[in-house]
Write a protein that binds this DNA or RNA. Structure first.
Lengths: 168, 168
DNA sequence: TCGGATATGTTAGCCATGCTAACGATTAGC
DNA sequence: GCTAATCGTTAGCATGGCTAACATATCCGA
């Protein structure tokens, strides 16, 4: 999936249709952000391989660890994935001993998926490795730059959340 | 792959070992950035599906369009992917008429991969859709927030680039 | 110059992750 | 109670990562 979209102001201008300066800026910022996000995630993803689990499983496991037990449908929705995909991910987590699957007492169609102690440990270790790798990279920054990044992260979350809500 | 690592200050403190406030901040910022990057890319990736090409192909194609013709090895290195993987991606691009593959005159082992006119068009359209989706999301922001995001993107690029160089 | 080492791609085959279609079982609702 | 909706699974397809093993081609040292 690895990427490297070169940032060309020229092509941004072409894309935006040269409408106005504000428009141009948005496109430029969007392009830079996209590239930065790709590079940041590529950097952060490296340590995850050590866990022996794929990204989909780690991600689903994190939902279970931080969000508590979920039915398959809930987990699929949380991960924005279709039910068959999550069915397979859950089976993989169970096979690896990271999650348990129990019947729902009230609705026999449903299943309850929850993280095991081993699952919690594996997730925390993977998370620790990933965040530590990023945090080490951030160690070269001063407090002002850290604050800028934190603010940017919050802006991004807000913007994306608004879009998602509008889309639904 | 979809993710949603919940940000818990408590667990950050646990991860950092409670060494000092600056350490804690780095972990917190790292976690927020990671989450924001995932959500941003998830948002930006949606329009790409319209192109009918997978992300790996689009990404490799962008390298060809913006970086010019490449040998398979060069393209694999640019995408941080092994040769067999890029071999298959290149075959897919050729099959879709987005790239051409020519023999290298000087070294018969090598091949030259380059984007076709159709490839350029398809990439620009996909890129346009993707960046436009992001730019629309950014439309709710004021100039100060845009500037903050741009600065953050530059900081991220700098930090990650330094790490990559150091790792090599 | 020749022959082994190195470099470059390809093929085969594994696994993980996404999807849709089709199905089985269960529950809800009229 | 019968029909329709819901929930999960299975089967099958495509993409995209990997390693191992291979075929060529080039390089380099004896």
């Amino acid at each position: 999936m690895r990427n490297s979209f070169v940032k060309l102001i020229v092509s941004n201008a072409k894309l935006s249709g040269m409408t106005c300066p504000a428009e141009l800026d948005r496109f430029e910022v969007a392009d830079k952000l996209h590239s930065a996000a790709i590079h940041l995630l590529r950097h952060a993803a490296k340590p995850d391989a050590q866990s022996g689990q794929g990204p989909a499983r780690l991600s689903a496991l994190s939902v279970l660890v931080f969000g508590g037990p979920k039915t398959l449908g809930e987990l699929a929705a949380a991960e924005r994935v279709k039910a068959p995909t999550m069915s397979r991910i859950a089976a993989g987590l169970k096979r690896a001993g990271l999650a348990r699957i129990q019947k729902d007492g009230k609705d026999a169609r449903r299943i309850q998926i929850s993280a095991t102690a081993k699952g919690e440990r594996v997730l925390q270790e993977a998370r620790q490795r990933r965040i530590r790798a990023l945090a080490e990279a951030l160690a070269v920054l001063g407090p002002g730059e850290l604050t800028a990044l934190q603010g940017a992260a919050e802006i991004i979350e807000r913007v994306v959340r608004e879009r998602v809500i509008r889309a639904n």
